[in-house]
Structure formats: structure tokens, C-alpha cells
Design a protein around this nucleic acid. Structure first.
Length: 255
DNA sequence: CCAGACGTTGTT
DNA sequence: GTCTGG
DNA sequence: CCAGACGTTGTT
DNA sequence: GTCTGG
């Protein structure tokens, strides 16, 4: 599952990741890089225009369908994920699958492991901080004043073998340029191709480490959200401070 | 025909 | 908008 | 997703 | 436990 993420990419990084110039980023001024964001936040999204050319648009995470009533209170948390397995059957998502596919650009995302009575957050990212691309669907809604709001949802799939210890669901991560092209390309997706694109990403360049529990608060910002947590062993904890200072704290990434 | 819903996750 | 239920 | 609140009455 | 707010 995927309900919290990092998108602290600079403007140039976003443009480079999308492969477009600055004139091809709609609402770029509405994107503010954040280390800790959730539904309701705005991030850069890649999609194709009518000609089939790549285009960026800052959109809000959390799908608000176009038919949402003007008087309804917006809820960005209701549809921030879509189960890829059932998207073709669900009316709310299937209507977007043919022509409203998009790619979400992120540094990585967070998952919480239930450890005894506490929840330990983990930051999941690509080796070398390679930009992460997730498969998404978007829609536009118009408020009573006529202002347009464009929102998106992130597709989820079963967790990969490597990530299963942490959660049973994970976002649909597009592994390479070819997959991104297939997801964004105009027209209806063949169901086999769709299933292949939604397969759990299991490459060993996907890595993770525990981070401070302070970032569990949605409003906690700052780079500490994504810094490896230094967890001392019990043995080191009882050693004199001076001795402990020299210890290189080992991070347990795998189980 | 009209009315009403339209979602995911985790946890027990 | 579009599908399901009555 | 996690965090935090979760209530009524009468009076000003 | 369950709902609301971010």
C-alpha cells in the first residue's frame, strides 16, 4: 500500500525525469518539494497530450472523480490508491483506464511495520536515489466557481517477495522507460499488457531502511524523514558513551 | 424506468 | 459518467 | 497512511 | 472502537 511518500525533487530534476522543457509543465508553481507528503498534497505528474507528446502537470494526490457533486466535501483519502487487480471492473476507475493514465514522479514512499506495540516507518527508494515512477490514473473536477482540480490515484499490487515482510501491498512501480512508454501511450491497454505492467517490482535496486517515527505525523517535514535511523544494539546501549561513539551502526535492511 | 453508488487499507 | 439494484 | 479526538448544558 | 483531520 502507499499512503505517504517523498517528492523533494527540484524543478530541473522533474523536467529531466519527464524529458520536457519548462514550457511543458502546467501549474509548476503549485508544486512545492516535500520530504513527507500524503493525499491532499500536490506532486508533478507525467501524461500525454492529444498529440501524444509528454507533458507535466501538478496534480493533487487522491482521486476526486469528475462527477463529484459541487457541494460535496472533497475527500482526498477515499481513493488515493486503486487496486490494480480490480481497476478494470470498478466503474470509478475503469472509466479512466482507457485515456487517463499517468505517471507519478517520486523519490520513494513510506510503509509502517508493526513492531510489537509501535509502528516503525520505513523509507523505500531506488538505489542511488533514482527517480521512482508509479502507475496512476487521473481525473479533473470543476468546483462551483468553475475552477478545475486535477487529481490522481496510485495503483497498488501484491507486494514483491522482497517487500512482503513489510506489507502485503505495494505501489505499481514502472521499472524502466519502456514500461513508462507502454503505460502512457495512447489508447486502450491489452489486458495482458496491463497485468504485466502491474506486476510487483522485485528488483534488488529497490532498497529501504527505517526512519524516525517523528515523520509518522503528517505535518512533520524536513530531511530527517528520509535519513537512515541509527538503531543501536542493546550491547552498544550499555557501553560507555565514548566507546559507543566510534561504533559504525549497522542497518538491517533485509530479514 | 429511476435511484443510488461509485474506494483502499488494516485489523480482528 | 456509468454501472448496479429495485 | 497516521494522529488525534471522541460531549452536553446553560450562559455570556 | 470509530470517525475526522492533515
Amino acid at each position: 500500500m502507499c499512503g505517504r511518500a517523498r517528492c523533494s525533487l527540484g524543478r530541473e530534476q522533474v523536467l529531466a525525469a519527464a524529458g520536457v522543457g519548462e514550457d511543458r509543465w502546467r501549474d509548476y508553481e503549485k508544486f512545492l518539494p516535500k520530504y513527507n507528503l500524503g493525499p491532499g498534497s500536490r506532486t508533478p505528474i507525467v501524461r500525454r497530450d492529444k498529440k501524444g507528446d509528454a507533458e507535466l502537470q501538478t496534480m493533487t494526490w487522491g482521486l476526486v472523480p469528475s462527477w463529484t457533486k459541487k457541494e460535496d466535501k472533497l475527500d482526498f483519502f477515499r481513493m488515493f490508491n486503486a487496486r490494480s487487480e480490480t481497476v478494470p471492473e470498478k466503474t470509478v476507475f475503469s472509466r479512466l483506464l482507457g485515456s487517463k493514465r499517468c505517471v507519478v514522479l517520486l523519490n520513494g514512499f513510506f510503509e509502517w511495520a508493526q513492531e510489537h506495540k509501535t509502528k516503525q516507518p520505513y523509507y523505500i527508494h531506488f538505489d542511488g536515489d533514482r527517480v521512482m515512477r508509479m502507475a496512476g490514473l487521473y481525473d479533473s473536477w470543476q468546483d462551483a466557481e468553475g475552477n478545475w482540480l486535477t487529481t490522481y490515484t496510485i495503483l497498488t499490487t501484491d507486494s514483491s517477495k522482497r517487500l512482503q515482510w513489510l506489507h502485503d501491498r505495494m505501489p505499481v512501480i514502472l521499472p524502466d522507460a519502456q514500461a513508462e512508454e507502454a503505460w502512457l501511450q495512447d489508447g486502450v491497454l491489452d489486458s495482458k499488457e496491463y497485468a504485466a505492467l502491474c506486476a510487483p517490482y522485485d528488483g534488488d535496486d529497490l532498497q529501504w531502511y527505517p526512519v524516525t517515527t517523528a515523520m509518522s505525523k503528517p505535518d512533520f517535514q524536513g530531511p530527517e524523514c528520509c535519513k537512515p535511523l541509527k538503531r543501536q544494539s542493546i550491547a552498544n546501549f550499555f557501553k560507555p558513551k565514548k566507546a559507543a561513539q566510534g561504533v559504525i551502526h549497522q542497518l538491517v535492511h533485509d530479514y
